[in-house]
Design a protein around this nucleic acid. Structure first.
Lengths: 253, 253
DNA sequence: ATCAGAAGTATCAAATAATGATAACTGTCA
DNA sequence: TGACAGTTATCATTATTTGATACTTCTGAT
C-alpha cells in the first residue's frame, strides 16, 4: 500500500483504475490471476475490483474462459471525450476534406505529455491495425507529428525535451540519437513541417503539419502516412505538403 | 448509500465510475457542483473522487474555470477496446474497402443490450458531428442497423424486444409505433437488409446489412448513411445494397 | 476414469481508509 | 465593499475495505 499523504486521494478508486489500465494491445483478455500479476494488487482486491467493474458494465466476462475484457462502455467514454474537446469538431471536417481530396490516410495527433495521441484517424488503405485506430500513444520524439509540434516551442523546451523525453524504437531504423532528433526538430521549426521515414514502420513515410494556436504553439498536428514503395520523401512533400499545411492551418488550435 | 448485499461489490469504485459517466455529449466540462448534481453523490465524495481521477490522469482540469474534462486517457481506453474485440480487426479493412469504392460514409454497429453502439465510422462528408464519431449509443428499435440485427433472432425475441425495448425520437418522423417497428423488423428478416429514412436525422437514408455469426445471429451490422437529397430509398438500395451485403458477409461475425 | 494442481469463489474478523459534516477560503458580481 | 456561490481543507467516527484463508470448480496429465 503506497503511502500517499493526500487526504483527498481515494486509493480504492485508484486500484480500480489500475484494473482498467491493465488492458492494452497485447493484453486483450485477462484472467483474475493475469490481473494480479499485471496490477500487483492482492488477489482479493483484484477479485473485488473486477467484480465491481463487471457489475457496473465496464468489463465483459467470457463465460467459458472466465476472462475479463473491455466492454462497449470504453467506446462510450471515447464518445464523451470527443464532444469535450473542441479541437476535434474543428478538425474532423478538414480531415475528411483532405482524405477525400487525396485518398490518403490522414490523422490528427495531439500532445499528451511526452507522447502524442492519435485522436482522429481516417484510414484509406489497409495498413497495420494499430495505425488505423484512435487512442494510440507514441513518444513525441520518434514521430513526425510529435517533432513538428515540439518545434513550435521555445529553444529551451526543445532542448529539454530532446534530452530527456522518452523514446521507443519500433524498427531497426528508428532514430534514437537525441542530438540527431534535436536537429530534426529545429529543422521542422524552420520548415514548418516534418517528414520521417521508417520510424514506426518500415517503408512508411510520415508527413506532419502543425495546428498552431494563437500563441504560435502547436498542441496538435495533422499527419499522413504514405508507403515508401509508391513514392520517396521528396515526392511526398511535393505532392501533399501544400494541401496538408492548408488543412492544418484551417483548423486553428 | 444503496445497500447492495454483494460482499464483493466495492461501492467506492462504483462512485468513482459515476463521475466518469457524468460526462456526455451535452456535459463536456463539469464543475464540482455540477458533478454533485449529476451523480447524486455527497459534495465531499465528489471532491475526493474527482481529485483522485485527476491525479490518476483520468480527468483534465481547466485552470481558470476549475471544471473537469475527460482526458486523453479516455481515448486510450478505446484503443484497448479496439484490440480486445476481434470483430474490429476483421471489419476495418472491409469497411475501408467499401468506403474507398463507394465514397460514402460507412459504419460498423454492434448490439449492446437494447442499444446499438457505433464502433467504427469512416465518414466521407461532413455530417452531424455525433454521427461521425465512434461510441455513440442509440436504441436498437429506431435504427436500420439495430433492426436488421434484431431480425436475425427468434420470433419470440423480436416480439419481446419490439414490445419493451427503449426508443428515442430524434425527428418528428421517427417511428415510435411498436407494431410498425415489429413489422419492419420482420421485413428486414425476410429481405436480409433494412432501410430507414428520417429516423435519426431528417433527409437521412440509412441502409444496413447484418454481420451474421455461424449461428445465423447478427451481433453487428454494416450501415451507410446517404442524403435523401441525392437519392431516394429505391435508388440507394439499387446502388449500394449488393456491395453492402458483400461487405457485411465478408466480415463473418 | 482419477487425481493433482491451478484458477476461481466465498467468508470473516480486524482496522484501515473512506465518510460526511463543517469550517475556511477564494473569487465574482451587485 | 459585502454577500454569495463555489471550492478547498480538516477531522472524529465508523462503515467499508481489507487480506488471509478456506472452499469449490475446472483442467489436463497419467
Amino acid at each position: 500500500m503506497e503511502k500517499r499523504q493526500d487526504s483527498l486521494y481515494v486509493s480504492t478508486l485508484a486500484r480500480g483504475l489500475k484494473i482498467l489500465r491493465a488492458f492494452d494491445e497485447s493484453h486483450v483478455a485477462l484472467s483474475l490471476t493475469d490481473l494480479v500479476e499485471r496490477t500487483g494488487l492482492e488477489k482479493s482486491a483484484v477479485q473485488r475490483m473486477a467484480h465491481t467493474l463487471h457489475v457496473e458494465g465496464m468489463l465483459e466476462r467470457d463465460a467459458n474462459t472466465r476472462r475479463f475484457r473491455p466492454s462497449h462502455a470504453w467506446l462510450q467514454l471515447a464518445y464523451a471525450y470527443y464532444w469535450s474537446d473542441p479541437l476535434i469538431a474543428r478538425a474532423l471536417p478538414k480531415l475528411i476534406e483532405f482524405s477525400q481530396a487525396n485518398a490518403e490516410t490522414v490523422n490528427l495527433a495531439q500532445m499528451s505529455g511526452e507522447h502524442i495521441i492519435y485522436s482522429l484517424r481516417l484510414p484509406t488503405q489497409r495498413i497495420h491495425f494499430g495505425a488505423s485506430i484512435v487512442g494510440r500513444r507514441v513518444p513525441v520524439l520518434n514521430t513526425a507529428a510529435g517533432r513538428v509540434m515540439l518545434s513550435t516551442r521555445s529553444d529551451a523546451e526543445i532542448d529539454a525535451a530532446c534530452a530527456s523525453w522518452t523514446m521507443e524504437a519500433w524498427t531497426h531504423k528508428t532514430v534514437m540519437d537525441r542530438a540527431e532528433i534535436a536537429r530534426r526538430v529545429r529543422a521542422a521549426g524552420r520548415d514548418g513541417y516534418c517528414i520521417t521515414r521508417d520510424q514506426m514502420l518500415l517503408n512508411e513515410i510520415s508527413l506532419a503539419a502543425p495546428v498552431k494556436g494563437p500563441d504560435g504553439i502547436a498542441h496538435a498536428a495533422v499527419q499522413i502516412s504514405i508507403s515508401a514503395i509508391d513514392a520517396n520523401e521528396d515526392q511526398v512533400v511535393q505532392k501533399f505538403l501544400r494541401s496538408l499545411l492548408d488543412t492544418a492551418a484551417g483548423i486553428l488550435g
